[in-house]
Design a protein around this nucleic acid. Structure first.
Lengths: 184, 184
DNA sequence: ACCTGAACACCGTTCAAGT
DNA sequence: ACCTGAACACCGTTCAAGT
């Protein structure tokens, strides 16, 4: 007997994300998610391969929140806007963010983020053959800082100090871009 | 009846580390460690508070492997040597390394690492009031890259390219140091 | 077609009991 | 004092059965 599904994959993701935000990643258990969806844990497997898959979807959901880059910006300001958008997403979902560093960036959301970074770098004058490396360096520096911040490595550092840290890091990358051109 | 202990905390750490190296972090289960020690899982709790504590000890063990900085080096070369030493440790224990970003750096090993970085920065001419920030930035950049590398985010990037990435990252920080002096 | 109940293998951890 | 057996609460996951 065909029956209409009672919930969607997006429901699962939304519930898992809210648990992660409220109580941390380790609270994201299949049965906790199921309770929030209003269903038994086994029903989740209709929409999700397994727990690892669910975590990947969580990362995707966070990346999908990134707003499209402002078209009026170009070059360095555009790259900077990307970085600030990423930091805002990290602030909204600090518990999910460390996952970004843990798995290869091959899903849709992280691929488009990487493409956006490369576009901005090209716009900054980085030669085509250095775009891949530039993207790796920029995202490594950004994710390193943001994962540190989200992961609590800076808990004892006041907020305004961390804000300044971030600005300095941006300046560091900005002034380092010309060196990237020379690298090849 | 007093009895001599059959194993030490260091035995537990060594076994856990070898499991992590060989089969990954998720294979480090209390019972897997116990099997390798040659004892029941419950016996581990004599030497370790709980599993989280064991993971902290694992991080400590990796940090303790870092060799003392070469006294003949000073200034930037010394900082560079620290970074290369850290990368070598990450290469030996890629599965443990992502943990470094996950918890506050307040244990013995990471405190001495931080102190060494600050010492090297002072030696580079960074003013005293900027040493803390300098340490945060340097370790963030380094850990971000190394955790990315260890975590497999660069699996599809050939080794020699990653080596070059690392050199460029070092150069970026090197040339950015003067900006740090001006920050205050 | 969708969801569930029952069941399985595994996990971390406690505590009283054995030596 | 040190280790273990038994037990507990919890985990992810499967599969046949219900609707």
């Amino acid at each position: 007997m065909p029956r209409p599904p009672r919930f969607t994959r997006d429901d699962v993701i939304a519930c898992a994300l809210s648990i992660a935000d409220d109580q941390g990643l380790e609270a994201v258990t299949m049965s906790a998610v199921a309770v929030l969806v209003g269903v038994t844990p086994m029903a989740l497997y209709r929409h999700v391969d397994d727990k690892e898959h669910l975590l990947d979807l969580l990362v995707e959901a966070v990346l999908r929140e990134l707003s499209d880059p402002d078209d009026r910006l170009s070059g360095w300001p555009r790259l900077e806007a990307l970085a600030r958008g990423l930091r805002a997403a990290a602030a909204r979902h600090p518990n999910v963010f460390p996952l970004l560093l843990q798995r290869p960036a091959i899903t849709g959301g992280s691929l488009t983020l990487r493409a956006r970074i490369r576009d901005a770098l090209r716009d900054c004058g980085i030669p085509a053959e250095e775009l891949d490396r530039g993207e790796r360096l920029v995202s490594t520096v950004a994710l390193g800082f943001l994962a540190s911040e989200a992961g609590g490595r800076f808990v004892d550092v006041p907020r305004d100090q961390r804000d300044l840290d971030f600005e300095i890091l941006l300046a560091l990358v900005h002034q380092g871009l010309p060196a990237l051109e020379r690298a090849s």
